[in-house]
C-alpha cells in the first residue's frame, strides 16, 4: 500500500535556483574573463566518419579472400591516414565556416558584462582579454570566468522536417579575491528560441552564423540573470 501510494506525492522538484552565498552578495567590482576552449558541433558537418573508415573495411574484406594482402597492410594504413587527413581537413573547413571570427567565450562574456552593467547592481564590471594582472587584479573583488565548452547547432524536435536550433552550453565561475575561492558556479544549456529545418542552416551560412551569435549573446544574458538572481537584493 505504501509502495503504491508513493506515486501520489511526487518528489519535490530539483532546486533550479542557486542558493545565495554571502560572498557573492558582497562583491561589487567584477572582472569578467573569457576562458577555456570551445568545441563547435553541427549535425552533418562531422558525419563523414563512415566514409573515412572505408579503407580499413575494404582491406579487411580483401584479406578474407586473398591472404597475401596482409603484406600490403602497411600501405593500407598509410592510405587510411591520408583519407583521415582529407576528411579531417574537410570537417575543420566546414566548422571554420560557421565559427570564423567568432570567439564564443568572448561574445558570452561581453553580453554577460553588459547585462550586469544595465542592472545597476555593481560598482564596476569590466570584460578583460585574459586573466587580470596588476591594477586590474587589485581593483576587482571577484573574477568571473566565462566558459563555453560546446556550442553549435542541435536537433530540438524530431519528425519531418527535423527542427534545429543554435545552442551554447556555458558556465560561469565567480572566484573571490584574495582567496580565489569559487563562491558561485552556474552551468546552463542555452538554446535559441528560433527553430528551423536543417536545410535552412546548411543552405544559408549567414543565417547559421547569425543564430550562433544570437545564442551566445543570449547565453551571456542568462548567466548574468542567474548571477543577479543568486546575489539577491544587494
Amino acid at each position: 500500500m505504501v509502495g503504491l501510494s508513493a506515486c501520489a506525492s511526487a518528489p519535490p522538484p530539483p532546486s533550479v535556483a542557486t542558493p545565495p552565498s554571502a560572498p557573492v552578495s558582497e562583491v561589487h567590482r567584477l572582472a569578467v574573463v573569457p576562458s577555456g576552449e570551445s568545441k563547435l558541433t553541427v549535425p552533418g558537418v562531422s558525419a563523414s566518419d563512415d566514409v573515412g573508415n572505408t579503407v580499413g573495411r575494404v582491406f579487411s574484406d580483401i584479406a578474407k579472400w586473398y591472404p597475401q594482402a596482409y603484406l600490403y597492410q602497411a600501405l593500407a594504413v598509410l592510405v587510411q591516414r591520408g583519407v583521415d587527413w582529407i576528411f579531417q581537413d574537410k570537417r575543420s573547413s566546414a566548422a571554420d565556416q560557421y565559427a570564423r571570427g567568432i570567439t564564443p567565450s568572448a561574445v558570452v562574456a561581453d553580453a554577460f558584462t553588459r547585462t550586469l552593467v544595465a542592472s545597476g547592481r555593481f560598482d564596476q564590471v569590466r570584460t578583460l582579454q585574459g586573466e587580470p594582472v596588476g591594477d586590474d587584479r587589485r581593483e576587482a573583488d571577484a573574477v568571473v570566468r566565462v566558459l563555453v565548452p560546446t556550442w553549435g547547432i542541435v536537433r530540438v524536435r524530431g519528425g519531418k522536417p527535423e527542427m534545429m536550433a543554435a545552442y551554447a552550453d556555458v558556465r560561469a565561475q565567480v572566484s573571490v579575491r584574495p582567496t580565489s575561492v569559487i563562491t558561485w558556479e552556474h552551468d546552463e544549456d542555452v538554446t535559441h528560441g528560433e527553430r528551423l529545418p536543417a536545410q535552412a542552416f546548411t543552405g544559408d551560412l549567414q543565417l547559421a552564423r547569425q543564430a550562433l551569435k544570437d545564442v551566445l549573446e543570449r547565453a551571456g544574458q542568462r548567466l548574468a540573470n542567474e548571477l543577479l538572481y543568486a546575489r539577491g537584493d544587494q
Binding site: 511526487a10 532546486s15 535556483a17 545565495p20 537584493d233
Partner: peptide, 19 residues
Amino acid sequence: TGCSSALDVGYPEAAVNPG
C-alpha cells in the same frame, strides 16, 4: 492517492530568492 500520468509542473517556493 492521486497517482496520475499528468506532470506536476511547478515553481517551487523554496527555490525563490528575494532579489
